[in-house]
Amino acid sequence: MSDRWPEHLTVRPWTAGDARSMAAWRYDGPWRVYNLSAQEELPDEDDGYMAVADADDSRMVGFYCIGEEARVPGLGAELGVVDLGVGMDPIWVGNGHGVSFGRVVINYVRRAHPTAMLRVVVQSWNTRSLRLVQRLGFIDSGHHVCVQNGLPVTYVVALLPAP
């Protein structure tokens, strides 16, 4: 794997190899909550996931998902709203690539859903991701609390209005 951030990113279909790669990602510190456990079922090609990859060699640097896969427990679907979840390989996290990565994802999702509002949820302690979604134009619209792994988790809900 190259140690340089790709000059150009593209979105491509999700593969079983992408799922295996994502399962091996290990985040440090409080971001460990995003590590997949061995018991979790890996997303497959039919789960609404797409890979964000280097346009030159197709290696995955992250992913996005929409719809039900992007929603946390208790957060219902809303008419005119596309739920969006994203993840980036931890080797790239915290290195200033979030805005370029996020813009690629937003532009791609906007092509398929040009009039929809986009909704993301970010755990309330994750100030780094909260700053990123603000820089991408999302607006804080409240909080959502749900129980995950037996514990209450508070999320900030943020919306990106349709253009």
Rank of each mutant, 00 (worst) to 15 (best):
L159E: 15
V72W: 13
T154D: 15
L9T: 00
G74M: 07
Y155K: 07
V156P: 06
R32N: 13
G62A: 08
S100F: 00
W31K: 15
M22L: 08
A55P: 08
Y108V: 11
D44K: 07
L9S: 10
W92N: 00
V153K: 07
W125H: 11
G80D: 10
R135I: 01
V157F: 08
H144W: 04
Q123S: 08
Y49P: 09
D3G: 15
Y64W: 03
R128P: 00
P30I: 04
P13K: 10
G98E: 04
L36N: 09
V156G: 07
S124I: 01
P163E: 09
Q39T: 12
Y34D: 12
D140F: 03
R103T: 06
G142F: 02
L151I: 05
V81T: 00
Q148I: 13
N95Y: 13
A77K: 12
G85L: 11
Y49L: 11
R111Y: 03
E41P: 06
R20S: 12
H113C: 02
D3E: 15
V81Q: 06
D56L: 05
G98R: 06
E78W: 10
D46L: 14
Q39S: 14
E78N: 10
P43D: 00
S2C: 12
V82D: 13
R26K: 11
G48W: 07
V121Y: 15
E69G: 12
E7D: 13
I66D: 10
S124H: 05
G76C: 14
V99K: 11
S141M: 12
G102H: 01
N126E: 01
V93H: 13
H97W: 00
F63S: 09
R32E: 14
E69D: 14
P73C: 04
R135E: 13
A70S: 08
L130P: 04
M50H: 13
D54N: 14
V61N: 12
R59P: 00
V72R: 15
R110F: 03
Y27L: 08
V86T: 12
A38L: 05
R32H: 13
G98A: 10
H113W: 05
D3W: 07
P6K: 01
T10Y: 11
E41M: 08
L132C: 03
N126V: 00
